[in-house]
Every structure is written in C-alpha cells, then in structure tokens.
Design a protein around this nucleic acid. Sequence first.
DNA 1: ATTGATATTGAGATTCAGTATCAAATAGGA
DNA 2: TCCTATTTGATACTGAATCTCAATATCAAT
Lengths: 143, 143
Amino acid sequence: MDSSEVLTSFIKKNGLKKTSVRHLLLDLIKKKSGHFDVEELLLGIKQKNLKVSRASVYRTLHLLVGAGLINESLQRDGRTVYEYSSEKTHHDHMICVKCGKLIEFSDSLIEKHQKEICKKHKFVMTGHKLEIKGICSLCKNKV
Amino acid sequence: MDSSEVLTSFIKKNGLKKTSVRHLLLDLIKKKSGHFDVEELLLGIKQKNLKVSRASVYRTLHLLVGAGLINESLQRDGRTVYEYSSEKTHHDHMICVKCGKLIEFSDSLIEKHQKEICKKHKFVMTGHKLEIKGICSLCKNKV
DNA sequence: ATTGATATTGAGATTCAGTATCAAATAGGA
DNA sequence: TCCTATTTGATACTGAATCTCAATATCAAT
C-alpha cells in the first residue's frame, strides 16, 4: 500500500474528506524525501504557482502525522522539522550546536531497549525522538 | 562543590557578575527539584513577594544551562520544561499523549550506545534528549 | 445531475513563548 | 568613593502556530 492509499484509507476511516490539498501536500513531501519545515513547503508551493494557504499546510501536517505518514522529527531554531516516514528504519539525530548540521543515525539496540522500557512501564509507544546535541567533527577542528 | 559554588565559579570564569537574582533563582530551582517551566517559576516568585522580571528569568535560565546546573528537559504544550541537573544519572522521558503524564526512566545501555555512536561520528556530545510519546497504563485502560 | 449536510479551505486576526531594546540600577575593581 | 561594564526591569517586538468564520468543496442520497 503506497502512501497515497494510506492517506485515502486514513481519511475514509476517520470520516474525513479526500481533497486535492491533502494529496498535493503529500506529493510535495514525498518528492522532498528528507527533512522539511512549514516555510520550506510554503516556498515550494509559491514557486510552483500552487495555491495552498499557510493554515492548510499546518492542518494537513497534523493530519499526516496522525496517519503515520510523516514524523515530527525535531525542533530547529524554534521551528518544527518534519520528515517523511519511509520504510527505512526509524532514525535519530545529532545536531551540531555550532553549524546546525544534522546527522542521522539509527541504532537497533537503542530501539530495542526503548521497547523493553515501554513494556516494563506498560506504556504503548506511538513515537519517539532522540536528539543528541554537540559539536560535529568539522566544527571541532575549527579555531 | 555544591551548585551555588558551581554558579559562582562559572560566573567568575566568564567575567560575569555575581548577583542576587542569579542565586535567588538557583535556590528556587533547587527547592523545586523536579520539572519546571518559566511560568511556574514566575508564579512562585510572585507568591513569595519576590521581584524578578520575566526577562531575567529567561536570561538566568540560559545562564544556568550554560553552567550545567539545569537542563532543557523537553517541550510540553509549546513551553520549554527544565530540570535541575542532580547527581543522579541522566534520565529520559515518556510522555502520555492522553493525560500529559511524565514518566522518567534511565537506561545505562542506551546511554552507552549513544556514546559509542558519537565516537563513531567524531561528534562531541554536549547533551541529549530522548522522548518517548505514547499512552500510559492508566489511560490505556480508560474507554 | 442536483441537493443538502458537513468538512475543508483561505485570509487574516490572534495567541503566546521567547527575544530585543534601552534607560536605570548594581557590581566590583581601582 | 568613583568609574566602567554588566545586569535588571518594563515593555515593545518577533515569529511560529492556532483560531475564526465566511466561502467553497466533498460526497452520499436522491
């Protein structure tokens, strides 16, 4: 089932309506395939001479998170950064506090431990976020 | 070296000035010993008939983070939640998306893996945050 | 295809956490 | 005490995210 079908079935299951705005945004996001925020999406929309309002972008992003198609990835400069939930394993982030560089990594052992901890607390995990802040190898060697 | 001394030496080392506001806030935070945000601090200040401005609270919190005395713990309802960096090992959080309940946990294996990953990427970690979102055991059993 | 009930959208106003500004107050060395 | 740099408080400002509400679109039933 591809993402468009996932969206359609999520919409149907929740008594919502299939709209062009919702599928248009999903398409834009799929093409980006990486991290993005609301400003980036709005810029892309403007450049392509499409018409989607800021409010609809925010609303649709919430919807897509609910459908599991995208994730709130992290906060950067006060903005929420999202990413498309691809099939590849969940990954986490290192953020360089000097240059803002984002490094992705994934560690199956950490994932496994998280699941065990949730089990121990009888907690049903719906999402998780691991952010490591520090100084990247390039910045470390500067001055 | 207790936290007040840590603050004093941090202030001296950075050519800053020792002020009553800074030590007052540190004392308030130590007494709280748990999670807190700016509004909570301001409320406590008001109730005790103390006088510290909102701007100074924000400024001092940044200072205390820099001195390693407190941590930015997580985001809750758009507000930054801090916590006092006690001697106990670093801990992470589970947040119930239904009731907002915060569950603390710590896992030395996860910590260890994080360090290894940083080493692999030649990344100098200055802090990290792990947030697991989901549904707590109490909410799970409610309708 | 038309209707009607309901959900969605766009434009702009609003909210609110956090930041910037700047004059007055304070710290602390000389 | 004096001098200079830092800090503080009051308040204006910023900007991401949300709210409002009239206009529009969806879709099931006719």
